[in-house]
Design a protein around this nucleic acid. Structure first.
Lengths: 343, 343
DNA sequence: CTGAAAGCGCTTACAG
DNA sequence: CTGAAAGCGCTTACAG
């Protein structure tokens, strides 16, 4: 609100300069915290900034300086718990650093569509965080032009990646190993696995961890069942597993799959955990409230998102360098859905 | 990849002009689809664009033209089903229109914090979509400067808003009315209600619809219980309701609350739907797979997000004007958790 | 149909 | 410590 009552155009650096009786370069120095400004001058400028409600135009800043305080998250999904939580973590950290956060959804894994999305994200300016938990994300990460700052949120790599790979992940393999061992320790002969879709043609980290635990225990290694990301896929897989009386323990690639499996077992009249134990992955908000409540592995997705941003932030500003490859440690949460084998 | 092997700076309009042997203004005309360009010239420019891999710099475009093809979604939450789905809908529509989408989270409902977030969103340039389902969102919507294009995703307004209110909503009141009537039609004497937090001090649309249905049926009107957004709040409310043997039907403000209520009833040994019927709101992905599967009302949140974007898009570009106040119609989904009263 | 000029709101050297 | 110039990559009138 100014005296004339008209506030069409926001105050610019020149308006502030006029009001403070200095040149606009001096205003630029003040808003950039440049040291060589006489305190009295600075105060006058600050007063003018305050009076006019001046805010530095981010677009002009980006164009003139060639760098923009922005990050775009590229993801195949925004509603699943893990994805949404990573996005939340990125936003939290970005907000704290006064970065704008954009989002681009990879609706298709088709090469051309992915390339187009990466271009859109690049056009937005700033850095990129790519969630590479699925084929679309993996392709997007690979398609990012070399000159763009980028951090990938990836599955646990099979082997330690080079220092130059700006990646973050949770230790899914270890998590899968732990929860599988928990189920085996209850006396189950083996553990069946309903997998989330894998990001590549290679075996996923969760699948590896599960298999290693079976191997270590000398347990039979059944073929993993392919699920999807949601409960419907778990339900389909659960119906097949429910038919086999030898199945007494099922690990699911995430809590939504587990929900579908629980439902399928219920429909087949097989009680959990008395006849079959079930465990999930993620510790989504609903896991604790299902009946039976779900044994699962808690993963710190928001922390992962924050770590991804921190890494990117370090790459985009010479200050605040961050250690590469942050890894968050999973935590086994034992609830009602897993119990002793009755065989 | 160019011949020199160096691709530091992306091609600009001037690079294209040089390559095509025209002035850069002509290039501008071509990329803006201006009619008065000789076909032969246009072709040469197009060829140069293609060859150099030119992409128009969005930052410069925004600065020079004063308008930016971007929308920022302001929301208190990114993980709850409804919020996340609206965001997804906005992104879908924005992508189709080649708009960038940003996101700002309102972590606090405190006036100053909200104002700061609105400022950040305004700084990003472009239009705003504010999800005003909670106090933070309502305040943010009110705090948006008049000169900014904005669309509010709101609860069903108590009275028809003016044509100048660019708002979208689902018909929550009607939805609550329908599902309450469904429960009453099963013979329940009345229906208890576990509410989501209301966006303002006034009664929410869902609460109104529930109350109207009770009133129309001449049923007693119990006080609504205050819940939260997640299952924990439902669990707390459910424990209290479980103690009262007169309670035979419970409506919940969303499916997550219903999950907590189901759990509390289970813990109290009250069977659903034999002793108590439960219904939710939203038809979140897990609703169909719970045991018992959840009766609920399906709301088209992604459609709502798309509508919000369409309205904003119409306001930001003179073309494609859209009818104000899009409303999506809810759909009752009857599942196992509701059944006849046994009283 | 096409070119030369001015400007969007800033920053980055360059002067003094 | 502070000011005048040039420029970021575009668009928008203005000429011809």
């Amino acid at each position: 609100m100014n005296v004339t009552g008209r506030t069409r155009r926001p105050a610019s650096i020149r308006d502030v300069a006029t009001a403070a009786g200095v040149s606009y370069q001096t205003v630029s120095r003040v808003i950039n915290g440049h040291p060589s400004v006489k305190p009295a001058t600075r105060d006058r400028v600050l007063a003018a900034i305050d009076e006019l409600g001046f805010r530095r135009n981010a677009t002009a800043l980006a164009l003139a300086s060639g760098r923009s305080r922005a990050v775009t998250v590229l993801t195949a999904n925004t509603t699943h718990y893990g994805y949404a939580s990573i996005l939340q973590g990125v936003e939290e950290a970005a907000r704290a650093a006064s970065y704008a956060v954009g989002i681009g959804v990879l609706e298709s894994a088709e090469e051309a569509a992915v390339a187009a999305e990466v271009q859109r994200a690049a056009d937005a300016g700033g850095g990129l965080i790519v969630i590479a938990y699925d084929p679309a994300g993996v392709r997007a990460l690979a398609a990012v032009p070399a000159e763009l700052p980028v951090v990938g949120v990836v599955e646990t790599p099979a082997s330690p990646p080079g220092e130059d790979r700006p990646w973050v992940w949770t230790d899914d393999r270890e998590a899968a190993y732990e929860v599988t061992r928990h189920l085996l320790s209850l006396g189950h002969e083996t553990v069946h696995y309903v997998a989330i879709p894998s990001s590549t043609r290679r075996t996923s980290a969760r699948t590896s961890g599960w298999r290693e635990a079976l191997r270590a225990a000398g347990a039979p290694e059944p073929r993993p069942l392919q699920g999807s990301w949601g409960p419907a896929g778990g339900h389909t897989a659960g119906r097949r597993l429910a038919k086999d009386p030898a199945v007494t323990a099922i690990l699911c690639g995430n809590d939504d799959l587990a929900l579908g499996v629980l439902r399928a077992l219920h429909e087949a009249g097989r009680s959990v955990p008395d006849e079959v134990s079930v465990a999930g992955f993620d510790d989504a908000p609903h896991a604790a409230y299902l009946t039976p409540s779900l044994t699962t592995v808690r993963l710190d997705f928001t922390g992962l998102g924050r770590a991804a941003f921190a890494l990117l932030h370090g790459a985009m500003e010479e200050s605040a360098q961050v250690a590469p490859h942050p890894v968050s440690v999973p935590e086994l949460v034992i609830r009602e859905s897993s119990g002793p084998s009755r065989r």
